[in-house]
Each structure stands twice: as structure tokens, then as C-alpha cells.
């Protein structure tokens, strides 16, 4: 039996009267690629925000390797090895691509005053190391992108920005990766390339677990091991895509939307 890395129990998030998540039980196994689907406004992004400490759950709990991390602040969650991308890109656009990636590698940086201000030799060594890591990572995802390492993010296309965001989430070699519609705005080819790279990455880091929020059902069908379907903040189905897509509740939720 595979190990559970992340588990939510009766997770509930409310905004005023609205329950954006309502008693959600989700399990994520080690090395698993979990698809999270559901119509617009069904609470998928809210789920990520509750996991990463951006929203505080009103009830329920989040367990990481069995330890309760409910309500942990975002910087703690990152320290536990959980990283994410944002549905609406949240890069520091006036900074360079390199700077953005290094921000993602926060936990491997030495923030000491001595290291940063006075011992510039050791700082330079760490900088060069970070440049090399960033360059390698970027060129995995797009051969052209690595050339823009020293350009401001604002000069990149939307697609490249999404790639940078994925790289920022990967650079610290997380245990759990949360992807919030990373392929929005990409062509099918670009999406396929992105997913291929993610699969490659999983081969390299087999213990990485991924939760992917995605609109494109074909894609979920192809890449996910299992998926969870949300509607109005509740889980309405769970299992392999081929199974859940047949369930009448799921079809109704989607048909109602389309």
C-alpha cells in the first residue's frame, strides 16, 4: 500500500455565509499525480489556498505525513516542502527571471548578514550555483527561455511566464507540487510539452506528489493517476478519470455548467 503524504479531513472554508469548501476529505499518496476538477467556482483554488495557509480553514484538518498542519502560515507550509503555482500569475514582473526563480529556492539560500553583506566571496559562490540551477531548470522546460534568464519577467510572453512560475515552484525540489491551471492560455502543443517535462521530472523525483487543477479533461485523463471532482465545495466523485467521468453526478455538474 502506498503511503499517504497529505490528507484533509472534513476541511471547510467559509466566506461569510458561503461555504467555498464543505467538509472535504482528500488523500494524496506519495508519487501520485492527482487531478482536481470541477466547474468554475467549485472551490478548487480555495482548496489550494487552504492547504498553503493563505486561507484559514473554518473547520477540519490538514495532515502532512500524519502531522496536523492545519492553519500553518504559508512560509511554514513552504518549509514543509509544499509549493504551488497561482491561477492568476503571481510573479514579480519587474524583477528578472533569475530573481524570480531564486525567490522560489528560498529554503536553500543563506540569509545571514555576514554571508550576504560582508563575505561577498561566499555569496558569489552561492549566486553562481543558483544561476546554474536556474539555467538548467529553465532549459528543461523551454530551450529558448534560458536565454532570457537576465531579462525582466515583464518582457516575457504569458506562456513563458507560466513556465517560469512552474519552475519557481520546482526549483526547491518540493515533495508536493500544487498546480493551479498551469496550461491556461497555452496551445495543446505547449501544454503537452509542459506535461511531458513534468512527467520527466517525476521520473527524476519519484516521490514527488502533484495535484493538478485543470480544465482540459483530455489532459486530466492522460496524466492523472486518480482524480477528485468538486462541486459547490463538496467532493462528488473520486477515482480514475475513466470511471468518474461516467458518473451521473459528475456529468450533471458539468452539463449544468456547459
Amino acid at each position: 500500500m502506498r503511503q499517504t503524504v497529505l490528507q484533509t479531513k472534513k476541511l471547510t472554508v467559509s466566506f461569510g455565509g458561503l461555504k467555498a469548501l464543505n467538509g472535504l476529505d482528500v488523500q494524496l499518496y506519495e508519487g501520485e499525480f492527482l487531478g482536481l476538477i470541477g466547474p468554475n467556482g467549485s472551490g478548487k483554488t480555495t482548496f489550494f489556498n487552504a492547504l498553503t495557509g493563505i486561507y484559514r480553514p473554518a473547520a477540519g484538518s490538514v495532515l502532512l505525513h500524519g502531522n496536523d498542519i492545519t492553519g500553518a502560515p504559508p512560509n511554514k507550509v513552504y518549509a514543509y516542502g509544499i509549493t504551488r503555482t497561482f491561477q492568476r500569475l503571481r510573479l514579480a514582473t519587474s524583477l528578472s527571471v533569475l530573481d524570480n526563480l531564486i525567490i522560489g529556492n528560498q529554503r536553500n539560500l543563506n540569509l545571514g548578514l555576514w554571508h550576504n553583506i560582508f563575505n561577498r566571496k561566499s555569496f558569489k559562490r552561492q549566486l553562481q550555483e543558483q544561476i546554474q540551477i536556474s539555467e538548467e531548470l529553465l532549459s528543461r522546460f523551454s530551450r529558448d527561455l534560458a536565454v532570457h534568464l537576465f531579462k525582466p519577467v515583464s518582457s516575457l510572453s504569458m506562456i513563458d511566464r507560466r513556465r517560469v512560475e512552474v519552475c519557481r515552484a520546482l526549483i526547491s525540489e518540493p515533495n508536493i507540487l500544487l498546480l493551479d491551471e498551469p496550461s491556461a492560455g497555452m496551445t495543446p502543443d505547449e501544454t503537452r510539452a509542459l506535461m511531458d517535462e513534468l512527467q520527466d521530472w517525476r521520473v527524476k523525483y519519484p516521490s514527488l506528489s502533484i495535484i493538478l487543477i485543470e480544465h482540459e479533461m483530455e489532459l486530466i485523463n492522460k496524466v492523472s493517476d486518480r482524480c477528485v471532482v468538486l462541486n459547490y465545495g463538496e467532493k462528488i466523485a473520486e477515482g480514475r478519470y475513466s470511471e468518474v467521468s461516467m458518473e451521473p453526478g459528475v456529468r450533471a455538474a458539468y452539463l449544468g455548467e456547459d
Binding site: T52, G53, I54, P73, P74, N75, V77, Y78, A79, T83, R84, F86, R90, L91, A92, T93, S94, L95, I103, G104, Q106, R107, R168, S172
Partner: peptide
Amino acid sequence: LDEVASAAFGI
């Protein structure tokens, strides 16, 4: 530039 995103990366 973005305190929420920074926090999500441990800052």
C-alpha cells in the same frame, strides 16, 4: 511586489 506569493515561498 507580492507579499502573498512571497509567503508561499517561505518569505
